[in-house]
Design a protein around this nucleic acid. Structure first.
Lengths: 342, 342
DNA sequence: TTGTATGCGTTATCAA
DNA sequence: TTGATAACGCATACAA
């Protein structure tokens, strides 16, 4: 049975007003720093009572009244991901310049319920949402006509009415593969590749990879396209499966740095040398990848540009619902470090 | 000048009700799945109008009415951190079991303003807050009497009225150092150590480290305690500074895996072998660390237990304001992998 | 099964 | 400079 203390509601502006002997509006004005509308004496009196009561503004009430929350969300598949972590911090810093906080939420659980990624609550609890749509069913977006400003991060084709920021997957994979070929590789395994077409991130990178092979007249080999999950362990397992099966390869193109780090570990565990026996290129240009041994070469998207345009598109939509949606593709470049030969 | 479209407010329940020719309450009941209170015909009618209008529940309004939000926050110093990423995903999964979403926010910007870590908005926009208080001024908490349920994650001493979950820093560092000594190390550098006492995470781990040295009769060496930042790059710089200065060492104890990964890169860049020339132990037992080459030995906190108790303490407080605060210390164990000798 | 009235805590507006 | 009033959108309690 709840005690009396359990029922004690947090103090409200009315409580402060009553105790200070002023009106609620005066408290509101003090709280919001509208100094021009409150005398010094009143201000002091109110502040005194506020700290005495431990009063805090009720944000939902304020949000209801103002029609805005002051927070935008970034929805990512998982919170413990190297790349999304960096994306999140970059976005947080930039949104803060606009007076908005960034809240990061995981869609992992929600994805199992398909449609729920963009359910009511996730959308309308925020002034805007950046959705990193790595997986899941693209058709989710078809019927959606959100009133909440929304920017899609990722490669899946989405209806024109949505703003989207993606990167040049095909081009990046094309150049990375060409670089590997130029550096002597002939049997390049694609870790995290897509075997079944489709239109996600993996599909785009796979397409670019195959295009490079074809262009160079190097035969494709089905066994060298290895689907994988997203964690470093998945990269390890993928590379290990090749080694266990006796599939020969002299290079690994991995669709993320996370996979590459795992794949490197599997290769090293077999006593193979990087880059002498096996060259490796990852994707995302993460800080951890650059600190690997050897330092991981990586396809580097223009992350700063991506963050900037994401914020611009979302802010535009927040400030004006008629802001036209855009689809922006940011460029990528291959950054060679220690896992590829000079 | 804003166009007419810019002023179009999102549809409300009233709009739906009017168009469907029913009362607002019927719409509310439909939206909330109270099927027992609405006939099938009504339900269909309302759903039709809802999708026609693209209606979404206004969460701030619902939150104001219900007195709860359905979201708890995890406030971390930075979003692009290996360990906090894993902590976040674990907590998100566990809170979801209780019907609560987790929103991760960065305090990085706020920390520059000292007190603002726990400002009004950050607290009252959520049903509860888990604060990872790695840095910043402990005195921030002194005057705070939050009505929002709060659990502190971290090592700083906090007032008894707060629930806190920390880990056995002293014990973990003690055992890690003893292990290194047992494995033949005599000159152990502490990367990320605290040179000036204090009470943070680094201070606790430094104390345990020194205690082990003293216990084994191994002389302390001031030049082997190397303060560092938190990113892998900072670990690289710290180890590199030792090497550049010609300070000899045969082992590195790093206060985080992130620092260890960077330090390993610096060591390897000098042609030193791990673990033959230099043994390394990190802290946090991250997935990426386990995938390093060689696999990073690490002090592993009982992360599952930490998440579980964190959720228990916060949920307890959310469900009953009189729930007594606790200070729980989770155990740590040294997990030996490839960066230490067998 | 459906509808009406009321209030959650805040702030804009207008009056004093 | 201060205060009274109304309204933001929703859901509980109760009436029909």
């Amino acid at each position: 049975m709840p005690s009396a203390r359990d029922e004690a509601a947090p103090p409200t502006m009315s409580d402060v007003a009553r105790l200070a002997g002023v009106s609620v509006m005066t408290v509101s004005n003090v709280v919001n720093g509208k100094d021009a509308r409150v005398s010094q004496a009143m201000r002091d009196r109110v502040h005194e009572v506020i700290s005495e009561l431990g009063y805090r503004v009720n944000m939902p009430a304020r949000a209801l009244r103002l029609g805005r929350i002051g927070v935008v969300a970034l929805a990512v598949p998982m919170l413990d991901d190297l790349y999304y972590g960096e994306v999140a911090q970059r976005l947080a810093d930039r949104f803060e310049d606009h007076g908005l906080r960034l809240a990061v939420e995981s869609t992992r659980g929600a994805l199992t319920r398909e449609l729920a990624v963009l359910d009511d609550s996730r959308l309308t609890t925020y002034d805007g949402v950046v959705l990193a749509a790595a997986a899941g069913d693209a058709s989710v977006l078809e019927g959606l006509q959100p009133s909440t400003p929304l920017v899609i991060l990722g490669e899946r084709s989405v209806p024109d009415r949505f703003s989207q920021v993606s990167m040049d997957n095909r081009g990046g994979a094309l150049r990375a593969t060409m670089d590997l070929l130029r550096l002597g590789a002939r049997r390049i395994a694609l870790i995290g590749g897509a075997t079944d077409g489709g239109e996600g991130m993996a599909a785009g990178r796979t397409a670019g990879h195959l295009e490079a092979l074809d262009g160079a007249g190097v035969a494709r080999a089905a066994e060298l396209i290895v689907p994988a999950g997203v964690r470093p362990q998945d990269g390890y397992a993928a590379a290990a499966s090749l080694l266990d099966a006796g599939v020969a390869f002299d290079a690994l193109l991995c669709v993320t740095d996370a996979l590459a780090l795992g794949a490197m570990a599997a290769v090293a565990a077999r006593g193979l040398r990087i880059p002498e026996d096996v060259q490796v290129i990852g994707w995302d240009d993460t800080a951890v990848g650059a600190m690997a041994t050897p330092a991981l070469s990586s396809v580097a998207p223009d992350n700063a540009a991506a963050a900037e345009v994401t914020v611009r598109l979302l802010m535009g939509r927040i400030e004006s619902p008629s802001f036209p949606p855009e689809h922006v593709v940011v460029s990528t470049e291959v950054r060679h470090r220690g896992t590829t030969r000079r």
